[in-house]
Structures are given as C-alpha cells and as structure tokens.
Design a protein around this nucleic acid. Structure first.
Lengths: 223, 223
DNA sequence: ACAAAAGTGTTAAGAATACACCCATGT
DNA sequence: ACATGGGTGTATTCTTAACACTTTTGT
C-alpha cells in the first residue's frame, strides 16, 4: 500500500560438507567493498523476479561454481535483519542451509577464490557471517539428532565407521562404537549392500546404503 | 550493488493463546483489497527504518491492539516467498510466532475487527495464511516437546490439570494423568507455591509456578 | 608377526507405559 | 449423599550406558 519503502532482500548460503572428517563450510572471497578481500558466505541481492530460493541457486553457481543439485539437501535457515556493517542501508538476509559431499568450488567470473574451511578454524569473516555459521552449526546438530539428514554428508555407499565419524564431526563429541551401531541400525534407515570396502591394512568393512535419500523425521531421537 | 530491485518485505504474526482449552490464533479482518473483509494474520509492510521485529511489534498494536510485551514469547518462524495472490508484486513475508495468555484484541483506527479463532475451526483466510498457521502449529508442537515454552500459554499460578490441558490442546492428544505428572515434575521446571485453587465442587488443587519465565531447552525431550 | 580398523554381547540403571482407586470440597 | 475434579503407586517393558576382546586384512 502507498509509498512505503522496504529493506533490500539478500540471500546467503551456509553450505556444509565433510573434509577429512571435519565439518567445513563454503566461503568465497569478496571482490569488492565493503569487506573487500575478506572471506564471506556466498550471497547477494534477491532480484524482484526471483524467489529467494531461486536467487540462492543462481548466486551459488555464480560465486562458487557449486550447483544446488550437487547438494543432498538445502533448506531455509533463518532471516537476519540489517546486515551489520552494510553501508548500503537496511537489509534482510534470508539464509539457506545446504549440505553436500565431494563438492569442489571453482573460480568464476565474479569470484576468483572460493573454498571450504573447517568450522574449527574460520578466519574473521565479513558482516556477521561468523555468527550465522555458528547458528547453522547448532541447527545442524539438532537436525542430525531427530532426522536422517546425515545422509547428505555421506557417499552413497559408506561404512559404519564413516557414518559414526560424520556424527562425531557434526556433534563434536565421541560416541561409543557398539552403542552407536546398535542404536543406529535399530532405526532401520540403512541396509548393508553385501559389498565391502577393501583397502586399508585391516579387516574389510561392510558398505551400507540409506533406504531413502530424502529427509525423514525419526520417532526416537538420536543421541 | 548496482540497480537491482528486490522484493517488498512484509511481516506477519501468528499469535497463539488458549481459549477454553483450545489453541487459538489471532486474526484481523482486512479493511481493503486484496481479500477485503477476509480474516487474515495481522501483518504489513516492513518500512526501511525498522527491523522486521520492530515492524511486527508496531503493526500488531496498530491492527489488533495487542502489545508484544503481553506475549510470553515471540520469535521468528519462517520467511515465505511471494505472497500468493498479492497483486502488488513479488514479496517476502517474515513471519513471527507469538504465544500469550489473557489477550483481548481491541478495535483500532485501521482495523475494526480482530479476534481469536480456534485452530480447529478456521475460516478461509487471505493469502496463504491457513498454510502458515498449520506450519506454526507444527512448530509449536515440536517446541513444547523440547523446551519449557508451555509457560507462555499459562497464568503465573496454575494447576497441574491446567498444565496438562495446555499440552493436550497443543499436541492434540490425550495424556495419562499419572505419567504426565511424574514426568513433568521430574523435569524440575516448576515448584508448588503452597497456595491452592479453591472453587469447584471438588478437592482444591495445588497451584504451581514456573521457576523461570524464559525459554529453556530440556535435556530429555517431553512426550 | 604385527599393526590397524572392523566387528560383536551382556549387564545394570533409568525411562516409558499401562493401569484404578481414594480424597477433599461444594451443593 | 453425591458429584466433581485432585491426587497418588506399582509392575512391566523398553531404552540407554558402560565396557573389552576377537577377526580380517595388508605389509
């Protein structure tokens, strides 16, 4: 109604994957001010003709070379008000949480540097992006406990040890091997494939598969 | 950057309280098109000089006479893209979830009709507001199970039966009285005040109080 | 033969569920 | 005296938590 101006709408993405059993987040180096050369979450303005989801998809490719369909899951996380330190005026930022595996960012026309950083060793980021990543990590912790979302961090075929490592990386705690297996197998989310992972100087490990590669809510919470 | 136009930013509120042990939601009747005379969630445009939270606060008073400090809790729920049926073009709506008790909406300059409706008997609402309320109710169900948020629905002094009724209204299921009491008292969130609720033609009921009237996360989930 | 990760079971404590009767008051 | 909601305990099942040794492979 009338002539009210509303804030600018931005989108930002917190994209997680595991690298060497560490939860890691995709960052891109800013090409301009404000915060030129600082690392930041991939994001940008949401143009009027795109939904925030669509804008996120496009911007992610443009800035990091990562396509949303490489992700196991992407969902809205939270909307933050007024980007701190943004000299270009009031804004809201709709933040998405994405989870994937084996993602390799590429240099693009607009951004020459993008890479994954362990959440344990983040540099000081642009805007309030450190805070946003902490929030996303908390949400992910909760989510692996009451859904099967861990699938998004794992390859199609995986060993129980890989599964446990993924949980441990997200939850930042060590779990008991026997109890972990008993409990997780009891959820009925995965099945053994009959194949084995050979390779190390040790006994081969059964390879498992998720029954469904879509988000499911668990009746009994996990951990 | 540059000359990109972004969508309009709206805020909307889903304000719950109990009325006759039914979970009810605050609606206001639209004074203009689109959807003139339809019931709708209180909401409006977020002007550039206000955060979405601040805009929510102001708009809630303007449209329904309800002040945010009458609510036990208010928090961001979700951001919906492009208000369906909004002829005024693309928009995002940042939706807040509020919970209170003993709230009486008042007619205001801009809106003559505001009232609570049981979520079980909602009329057909403007935009996608029915869908948003369903989503908010789901979230509330989850939230009463892993936080103490139920306090926001109850008076300061309350009986265990009132507490159980509140859970039952939110969860839409019947709980066992003895198990409910054992479990809830075991959480250590409330304490008896020594006072009693006299009145009915029956044994007086102990009155309890929450230890803290602020959101707490439970170690063991509830129900 | 040794190193390295895979795999496997039992016991004890705590939590969840199912279930029925007496108590204190108002009328 | 009776109607109404308040208040209480036990037995069973299921879940969680703690804990250590054997197996299979590569070198």
């Amino acid at each position: 109604m009338d002539e009210v101006k509303t804030p600018e709408v931005y989108v930002d993405g917190v994209i997680f994957q595991l690298i060497d059993n560490e939860l890691s987040v995709l960052l891109t180096q800013r090409e301009r001010n404000p915060f030129k050369d600082r690392w930041a979450l991939p994001g940008g303005l949401d143009p009027i003709e795109e939904t925030t989801y669509k804008a996120m998809t496009r911007i992610l490719v443009e800035k990091t070379g990562v396509r949303v369909n490489q992700l196991g899951i992407i969902e809205q996380l939270y909307t933050f008000d007024t980007v701190i330190g943004n000299p270009e005026g009031p804004a809201v930022s709709v933040v998405y949480l994405g989870i994937g595996k084996n993602i390799t960012p590429k240099a693009t026309q607009s951004h020459r540097n993008s890479q994954f950083f362990s959440v344990k060793q983040l540099p000081e980021l642009a805007f309030d992006h450190n805070k946003i990543i902490t929030y996303a990590h908390q949400r992910l912790k909760a989510k692996v406990s009451y859904t099967n979302v861990i699938f998004a961090l794992l390859p199609q075929l995986f060993t129980l040890s890989q599964l446990q490592d993924a949980y441990q990386a997200v939850l930042e705690e060590v779990l008991d091997k026997r109890n972990f297996r008993k409990k997780f197998l009891g959820l009925g989310l995965i099945h053994p494939t009959g194949e084995f992972h050979m390779g190390g100087a040790h006994r081969p490990a059964r390879l498992y598969k998720f029954n469904k590669l879509a988000l499911q809510y668990l009746s009994r919470g996990f951990d």
